[in-house]
Amino acid sequence: MAEEKSSLYIKDKDVVVPGEILAIGLDYLPGFGTYRLENKIIASRLGLINVDGRALKITPLSGKYLPKRNDVIICKVIDITLNGWRLDTNSAFPAMLSLKDATSEYIERGADLSKIYNIGEYLMVKIVAVTSQMLVDVSLKGPGLKKLPPGRIIKVNPMKVPRIIGKQGSMVSMVKKVTGCRILVGQNGVVWIQGDTINENLAIETIKKIEQEAHVPGLTEKIEIFLKKRMEKKEKSDEK
């Protein structure tokens, strides 16, 4: 039998749209966000295509956060139950923080749990389990997991979080250093910022800028220049 030639209809790093035919032929394999129909590979999500050898997979550009095990996220306490707290995860599914995962201190039976974490407070937690029905269990036991002190909360596109953090946290640590703010980024797209009002504003503006330009190569340098300019401007106005 004559071997049929497979052809690719897109280039690496192209933006693809659901229903777009990516490749025809059996030489290519469907990865995340794609599926095979007869001999065609078709996109099922909006995103950037990655051609990884024979496999085609999509990095989504939009969409809500979907809870995943071992993610560290920032949550808001929305309810208090008999044995723990219910948290809003900035996704379609609320999370449960049980007493046992919250603290190692002794808590008396029938104690008022709102004295420990009250409704409306923010916690940095780690997801320990996600069931098929998307019941999410979180824990406060681990390095860096805690109740967040007063600060500002902003929400960003969860797909852009890796870019905001940068390689080994390079991006976020730069913003921290220049603005002097304390910043924590949750995998679910919730960002907590604490500092002077002016610096907080600058940090928020910077993070929004990073989110918008997440696909630009060499973004770290660009943001560095942006921050430098802003700080010089601020110093000048301070002198006046």
Binding site: V17, P18, E20, I42, S44, R45, L46, P60, S62
Partner: peptide
Amino acid sequence: LADAGIEMREM
């Protein structure tokens, strides 16, 4: 729906 990142088999 596509813009919202919902999985769609076809447009």
